[in-house]
Design a protein around this nucleic acid. Sequence first.
DNA 1: AAGTGGTCTAGACCACATT
DNA 2: ATGTGGTCTAGACCACTTC
Lengths: 237, 237
Amino acid sequence: MQKYRMISNDIRNKILDRTYQANEQIPFERELCEIYDVSKMTVKKALDLLVTEGLIIKRRGSGTFVKDMGPEETKRVTMANQFRGTTAISPGEKIESEILDFSIVHPPEEVAEKLNMALDYFVYDIYRVRLKEGNPFVIEKTYMPIDIIPYLKRENVSGSIYEYIEEKLSLSIQSAHREITVRKATDFEAEKLNLEYGDPVAVAEQVGFLSAGTAFEYSISVHRYDMYAAQIVLTRN
Amino acid sequence: MQKYRMISNDIRNKILDRTYQANEQIPFERELCEIYDVSKMTVKKALDLLVTEGLIIKRRGSGTFVKDMGPEETKRVTMANQFRGTTAISPGEKIESEILDFSIVHPPEEVAEKLNMALDYFVYDIYRVRLKEGNPFVIEKTYMPIDIIPYLKRENVSGSIYEYIEEKLSLSIQSAHREITVRKATDFEAEKLNLEYGDPVAVAEQVGFLSAGTAFEYSISVHRYDMYAAQIVLTRN
DNA sequence: AAGTGGTCTAGACCACATT
DNA sequence: ATGTGGTCTAGACCACTTC
């Protein structure tokens, strides 16, 4: 593991276990250089990671400080910096899928735009209801180009597609662009999610990218309103 | 302006105006060093900004590539990296406020936790309905410690509080932690937002931080479901 | 093997806040 | 005046792809 990552982890832990307390000043960069026996740029990179995460704040001329948060907020922020597929969000809880559709089609125009692909290529069209401990909580519609994610079978689709991509195909997922909106459930959604028609749903529309830079996934997931929350850390550069 | 920021802006513009096209490889870091006459670390920092924004992807051993996105998605991603108060989100559109309450109180327990302050200190309690072009679209409940944001008057509250903080008080807003959830509108919310009871609303709960590292704001805003969207770029470190 | 981006260094100088 | 973090350099070496 890289030095800056070790340092960053070490300091994060010290914030989480309150060795460095809220609003407290942490050692100067110069001191951290000595403590960890590294150069200034390495310390800076480690601290910048924590700034992006939202845990600390640096003030030129005075020092570096732990953000003034309560313990709960601190934990939440640490969590918010994860990024995983639906299945991995609640580890320890059992996630199953009801497959409504699994076929190969030409992409609808909007999907082709999002995946930046030609209309005469093919995509998987995967339509699933996902259940946590037996209770449906999200309907996911996923499109993936067959050229990028080959050999996808029904059995892979019943579990975690992300896992299939990363472990079976050894592809690496790099990032995702997500838009969250809110609307009323349709009849169909209400039925599948055990809601009433017109009840609220959260809609997350997402484009996923591989390390190679290609868009590999366009998905729209419709969540039960009482089983959805999104966390964001916004930072001014 | 810093060199890395100029370079980063320049490359961002070239992506936006399609000088560098989707999925295209941009010049190697070594070449960029020569083009801009800077060192490698400076180029790296400029590119890393764009990686965080979600515009490009770097692949060790092969090069740096523009993400494989359509033009719309590219613009959206560029937008998503902003962060402003409600008033500034739609420039050019007229935002007004109906003030439901503006008082000074001891913080409720949850607020004290979020703002990491003692229960016997004081906070402003600001309750507003905000209207865009005359139409109500969000109800905002805001708490701010009076010690951090002094002299706040009713006139400041009818406009942009962020503007007051940054321009009148010369404080600098650094970041915010936001959680988005969904639920049904209460009777009161429905009335104020011109909705029906039980219609969906998006709830954004936010803690704002100053450059000094102190939490200066805890707010809960309840949005009309048809006038809310949040964008997120998720990146794996 | 050659060439990419990733990490790290030691040191210079700058901008800013505190003293 | 001192000391903080911010930027930038020139160069070394490493990890990874295949330029």
